[in-house]
């Protein structure tokens, strides 16, 4: 049975988007590697894994929201609020335990997510506008209630410092040493969990159903409120987890960080083929989208370009890919005489 599932997952045909992304990525890697031999090394890959793990976790949450037909822009605010309040709580109680801190952040994140779900469901708001509002309320309320003090290395809980510096294995070279961060297996675990929830549970299937057509979904007996609660609480919980990973990785706690980067994450997920109209999106596509984004963010230096060019490259690829995806759909619609306002 298990083997059956694995082969089915591995033999799944790639979507055109995924193939396209792989092609772009391959071309980019070949160009960069030919310009700078140092690029093609385990060290670069490990660096990328370290820098990209936070974004990957957020992106997986964002994917679920997009599949459910929504657009959440509050997850970075939730990540900061969850992470920061949990760290403050652990400092206040004097509990320097990583599990406690993570659990705190995840619970706070899920609670904030449920607020989003309730507002979206009962006011029937556009998810973008609702979460735009809640993001500034969450973040503003946190700063006002808890302050906006930053913590440097000396004040960060020791368990988080250990967590951020921990590597599952290290490679020693003559004058340098680098390791694969502990974040990497966590991201893999979150990916597998998300896959399992989406494709192997009732609630996951109902996320697809609600995203495709809420009306039909509710007529076949799917509880839309419960589905939405699951979607936004899951995103909130992942965001809380990401907040801790983010602070641990930096060994510096700044409550003003991260907020404002949410559109980059959404763009990475969209590049991976998730559609705004809901019901569509793959985990592999999301992973590829985030990797491409992180490649641009972290490796343009190898081409001798400054970080000022990050957005230019990513934006250009994003606009191009969006045009490509939707032009195909437009042509398909034209052939099938489908007249929709998407």
């Amino acid at each position: 049975m298990m083997r059956n599932v694995t082969t089915r997952v591995l033999n799944r045909k790639m979507t055109p988007m995924e193939k396209f992304l792989l092609a772009i990525m391959a071309i980019y890697i070949v160009i960069v590697a030919s310009q700078s031999p140092k690029f093609f090394s385990l060290e670069t890959a490990f660096d990328l894994a370290r820098n990209g793990s936070g974004a990957m976790i957020l992106a997986l949450g964002c994917l679920i929201v997009l599949i459910s037909g929504g657009l959440d822009v509050s997850f970075t605010a939730i990540a900061i609020v969850g992470g920061y309040s949990s760290v403050l709580l652990s400092r206040a109680l004097g509990v320097d335990n990583l599990l406690f801190i993570v659990a705190g952040a995840v619970i706070i994140g899920a609670l904030l997510g449920s607020i989003n779900a309730v507002i979206i469901h009962f006011f029937q708001l556009s998810t973008l506008i609702a979460t735009l509002g809640t993001a500034s309320v969450f973040h503003g309320a946190m700063v006002i209630l808890l302050g906006s003090k930053t913590f440097t290395r000396a004040d960060v809980p020791q368990s988080m410092l250990d967590f951020g510096a921990f590597s599952i294995f290290t490679i020693k070279e003559e004058n340098s040493q680098y390791g694969l961060t502990i974040f990497f297996p966590i991201v893999i675990a979150v990916g597998v969990l998300t896959w399992f929830l989406l494709y192997r549970t009732m609630i996951g299937r109902s996320v697809f159903a609600v995203g495709s057509d809420p009306e039909s979904a509710s007529r076949i007996g799917i509880n839309i409120l419960r589905t939405r609660l699951f979607v936004y609480m899951y995103v909130g919980a992942l965001s809380g987890l990401m907040g801790i990973i983010y602070f641990s990785g930096l060994a510096y706690i700044n409550p003003a960080a991260l907020v404002g980067t949410e559109l980059g994450v959404i763009a990475a997920v969209v590049i991976g083929g998730a559609k705004l109209t809901g019901g569509e999106g793959t985990i592999l596509g999301t992973v590829l989208g985030v990797v491409l984004w992180q490649l641009f963010q972290n490796t343009l230096v190898h081409l001798g370009l400054s970080s000022s060019f990050n957005d230019l490259f990513f934006g250009a690829v994003l606009v191009f890919m969006l045009g490509f995806i939707y032009l195909r759909q437009r042509q398909a619609n034209k052939r099938a005489l489908v007249f929709t306002s998407n």
Binding site: L263, A267, D311, L312, F313, G315, A316, L318, V319
Partner: peptide, 9 residues
């Protein structure tokens, strides 16, 4: 969203 990132870029 795409052009926002592009124009900023």
């Amino acid at each position: 969203l795409g052009t926002m990132i592009l124009y900023t870029g």
